[in-house]
């Protein structure tokens, strides 16, 4: 069961969170399954472009406030070493943003994995991050959209961070929401340094609208 334990740190948060009811167990299971399917498709796309088998983690789903997002994400990413990251927003029936966090060693390994010269200049390396990030986000958004039969669109990717400690990336000023539903999965390539985390943050109103969408999805199975 997910999303039922919300830590309310002060009364202001309590007021804004009042409207968010936790999902039922069925809705949580369905969401977990939908995310699992979408992330599986993203993993397949990544495996094809990298020409390697990609190990997928079990998707994690949490409700986070902007105040605890750094701690939650640094716990998920294992450490606070340097990372590079790209971001893309998505909209329509569900709104939010997707962030792909590349462990720096993995970002550096990308050119070699994709068969390019390893001495690419900085802008070419950035292009690779944007390309791979866009591929992952596109696959996961399309996967969710197809599975839930709901319309979703997404923006072009932009570079969010390069060789930056994670806790300097996910600062409240950088984020456009006060609390969000966070979905995380990570992709690793065996015997290589490559590892990246795909984080999807869905905004307040989406947490509500997702409930009805999940119910329809379950009726249709």
């Amino acid at each position: 069961m997910y999303c039922t334990n919300m830590a309310l740190s002060d009364s202001a948060d309590k007021t804004t969170l009042m409207s968010i009811q936790p999902y039922t167990e069925d809705q949580s299971d369905a969401l977990q399954e939908v995310v699992n399917i979408a992330m599986g498709q993203a993993g397949d796309s990544l495996a094809r472009i990298l020409g390697n088998f990609v190990a997928l983690s079990v998707p994690r789903i949490r409700l986070v406030t902007v105040k605890d997002v750094i701690k939650t994400v640094t716990d998920m990413v294992d450490n606070n070493a340097e990372i590079s990251a790209i971001r893309q927003s998505f909209s329509n029936s569900l709104r939010g943003e997707a962030i792909v966090v590349f462990a720096q060693a993995g970002a550096d390994d990308l050119a070699d994995l994709m068969g390019y010269d390893t001495d690419l200049d900085q802008s070419a390396k950035q292009e690779l991050l944007l390309e791979v990030g866009n591929l992952l986000v596109g696959a996961v958004i399309n996967g969710i959209s197809e599975t839930l039969k709901t319309d979703l669109s997404f923006s072009a990717p932009s570079l969010m961070a390069e060789r930056t400690p994670l806790d300097q990336v996910l600062v409240p000023e950088q984020l456009s929401w006060s609390h969000a539903l966070l979905m995380e999965v990570n992709f690793t390539v065996e015997n290589r340094d490559f590892k990246c985390h795909l984080l999807m943050f869905m905004t307040e109103e989406t947490i509500d609208s997702l409930r009805g969408i999940l119910d329809e999805f379950m009726d249709g199975i």
Partner: peptide, 25 residues
């Protein structure tokens, strides 16, 4: 029965004795 639809995942489980691989959904 898996959402991990990579061809290599399918190969691996067949080698490990699974009779079939069904993709989610």
């Amino acid at each position: 029965v898996s959402a991990d639809i990579q061809p290599k995942a399918q190969e691996r489980v067949k080698k490990l004795g699974a009779i079939a691989f069904i993709k989610k959904p």
